[in-house]
C-alpha cells in the first residue's frame, strides 16, 4: 500500500500548509482586541493597580512609597468613613428588602391576567429610565419642608405636621430610600414578572387540580422555583447599591450636618479628586471592592460552581 508514503508527502505536499495556531481565525482575534484590552488592562489591571497603590502614601500624585496598612488604619479611624459604611449597610438592607418584596408583590398583582397591564408597567418602570440626578432633585423638591408635602399639609390646617426627612440627620436615609425605591422598584418588578412568566403553566394547572390555594402555591411552589431569579436580582440590586453616589449628591450632598448621609463612593471621590489624598481614596475603593466580592463570590459559587457553564 502506498498510503504511508502518501500520508507523509501529503502533509507538506499541497498548498494547505499548517498555519501557526495564533493565526487561526485571525480576524476574530483582531476583532476581539478591544474586549481583551478592556478585560485585561482596565478591569484586571486597573483593579490590581488600585489595590497595590492603596498600600502607598500617594497624595496628589500616585507614588510607590510603601506604608503597609497605614491607609487602612487611617480609613477605619475616620468618623466619616465609619458613618459611610453604616449608612450604606442601613440603606442597602432596607433597599434590598423593600425593592425585592415590593417588586415581587407588584409582579404577582401584575400576573393576575389584568387588563391594561402594559399601561401599569409603563407607569411603574418609567422612573428607571431617569437618572439618579433627576430622581434626587425631584424628590428633594417634593420633600422640601417649606413648599413640599410638609408645607402642603400645614397649609391645610395641621400646623404641627412634621415631615422633613432630608434636613434631619436621623431620618435623612429614609428620604434617600423613598427616592431610591421610586426609581428602582419597577425594574425589580419587571425581573420578577419575567420570572413568574417563565414558570410552566402546568404547575398552576396541577396546583389547581390539587386544590391548593393560590397564596399557598406562591409561597410553597412558585417562590422556591424562582430562586435563581431572586438571587440574580439580589446581586444586580446589591452591586448597584454599593455604587450609590449620584442620588446622594443630588439630594443631600452628603449632609445634613456634613456627614449624615455620606456613602463610601462619595468618600472615594472626595479623597481622590478633591482632597488630593489618593492613598485614602485607593484604600476606600479597595474596601468597596472587598464588599462586592463578599456578595459576588458566594453567588458565583452557587451559580457556576459544580456545573460547567459556557
Amino acid at each position: 500500500m502506498a498510503s504511508t508514503t502518501e500520508a507523509a508527502t501529503g502533509r507538506q505536499g499541497t498548498e494547505a500548509r499548517p498555519r501557526a495556531r495564533w493565526t487561526r481565525n485571525i480576524s476574530a482575534k483582531i476583532a476581539a482586541i478591544p474586549m481583551i484590552a478592556t478585560a485585561l488592562v482596565v478591569f484586571v489591571g486597573g483593579t490590581i493597580w488600585t489595590v497595590v497603590y492603596s498600600f502607598t502614601d500617594s497624595k496628589l500624585l500616585p507614588r510607590l512609597r510603601w506604608v503597609g496598612f497605614d491607609q487602612y488604619e487611617r480609613l477605619w479611624s475616620q468618623n466619616r468613613w465609619l458613618i459611610s459604611i453604616e449608612n450604606l449597610m442601613f440603606y442597602g438592607v432596607m433597599s434590598l428588602v423593600f425593592t425585592v418584596t415590593m417588586g415581587f408583590i407588584l409582579a404577582v398583582l401584575m400576573d393576575q391576567k389584568i387588563r391594561f397591564e402594559d399601561t401599569f408597567r409603563t407607569i411603574m418602570l418609567y422612573p428607571f429610565a431617569l437618572s439618579f440626578i433627576v430622581t434626587g432633585l425631584v424628590w428633594q423638591w417634593i420633600l422640601n419642608p417649606q413648599f413640599g408635602i410638609q408645607g402642603v399639609v400645614r397649609d391645610m390646617g395641621w400646623t404641627s405636621f412634621s415631615f422633613d426627612p432630608l434636613n434631619n440627620p436621623q431620618t435623612v436615609l429614609y428620604g434617600l430610600l423613598i427616592a431610591g425605591l421610586w426609581q428602582g422598584t419597577g425594574f425589580v418588578m419587571c425581573l420578577m414578572l419575567a420570572g413568574l412568566r417563565g414558570i410552566d403553566e402546568d404547575i398552576w394547572k396541577a396546583a389547581r387540580v390539587d386544590g391548593i390555594p393560590t397564596w399557598k402555591t406562591y409561597v410553597m411552589v412558585i417562590i422556591p422555583m424562582m430562586r435563581p431569579v431572586f438571587i440574580t436580582t439580589l446581586v444586580i440590586v446589591a452591586s448597584g447599591i454599593i455604587r450609590l453616589y449620584d442620588l446622594v449628591v443630588a439630594m443631600t450632598s452628603g449632609g445634613p450636618g456634613g456627614n449624615a448621609s455620606q456613602v463610601p463612593a462619595m468618600y472615594v471621590y472626595d479623597y481622590m479628586f478633591q482632597a488630593q489624598n489618593l492613598g485614602q481614596g485607593f484604600a476606600a475603593s479597595t474596601m468597596m471592592l472587598l464588599s462586592v466580592l463578599i456578595v459576588l463570590i458566594p453567588w458565583a459559587y452557587l451559580e457556576f460552581g459544580g456545573k460547567k457553564h459556557g
Binding site: A32, M35, I36, T38, A39, L40, V42, F43, V44, G45, G46, T47, W49, T50, V51, Y53, P62, V235, S239, I242, R243, P264, A265, V268, Y269, M272, L278, G281, F282, A284, S285, T286, M288, L289, V292, L296, A300
Partner: peptide, 19 residues
C-alpha cells in the same frame, strides 16, 4: 475574557476610576 468582563461589570467603578 468574557467571564472577566462580566465580573468586571459588578466591580465598583470607583476602583478603576484613577487607573
Amino acid at each position: 475574557f468574557f467571564t472577566i468582563l462580566i465580573f468586571g461589570s459588578f466591580i465598583p467603578y470607583q476602583i478603576m476610576l484613577y487607573p
